[in-house]
Amino acid sequence: MNGPLAYLDGFGRRADIVVPLTWAVTIISIAVCIVIAALLWMAIRRGREAAGVDAMAVRRSEGGMRFITIGLAVSLVPLLVTLVWTMSALAAIGAPPRRARVEIDVTAHQWWWQADYAGDQPSLGLRTANEIHIPVGEPVLLRLRGADVIHSFWVPKLSGKTDLIPGQTNLTWIEANAPGRYRGQCAEYCGLQHAHMAFEVVADTPAQFAAWRQAQLQTAPPAATPQQARGRALVEYRCALCHTVRGTIAGSNVGPDLTHLMSRSMIAAGTLPNDSAHLAGWIVDPQSFKPGSLMPAQALTGDQLADVTAYLETLK
């Protein structure tokens, strides 16, 4: 039961409520299958005849209805238990246990995730992509929207799914009770690259979270070397059509915000590890990793690619 997306164990307040219920209905279900299989097996073994149909007259035995009445009476017990348990679990996870102090607007795009953190003042709000940090032990309110088609927000270890639907805002909340990285995945079919629309929720200690937040508020550092300066110019010229790097003139919102690109562990929505080799490969030929992705291939010379990569690696 130990895959990154497996949900028969969990690490959050919601999971604490839902995992036992999931186990319960699973065990009930397995038990029902075993009982019925055994009954069926016994029924067949019991009266099994080697003769053909012609040799055997039809006869009616009494008492058949008892099977149905007893069977129904026994079946009702797990059904009613599940019904009551379901309703109480639903009520328990319907709203966060206390007012959430962290609120995040999550917007799903074909095929990546945008996260906007509301701040107490506008200048304390920040935007990032594909890696959502939350403080451990705190309920976090999520406002979910779909930018284009329907997607579904799902971090199995923390919580079940909530759809992100264009034209409406869905609310949900998560709370992690152990620090760690939790993989998330789009769970509603959304087109060509539905398969590669993952993300990570990173649960930090409160101190780490505050530090992360502080760091994310910074603008991009100035270029420190001539190579980085050349790279920055290319980024402003080429990448700026879709991406934002705060502190430069790149300010478009079609693709993920790159201001702190290197603080994230994955690129291309959980598709590739974020290291310079993969980054360079992704820039030159995104379509081979994620066919259909809205990121076009960049025709860069080897030197240009090295410049761009060198600059992007300063965006920590």
Partner: peptide, 10 residues
């Protein structure tokens, strides 16, 4: 199941 149980399955 009752039908199989009470019958003589071929």
């Amino acid at each position: 199941i009752a039908t199989i149980w009470l019958g003589r399955p071929i």
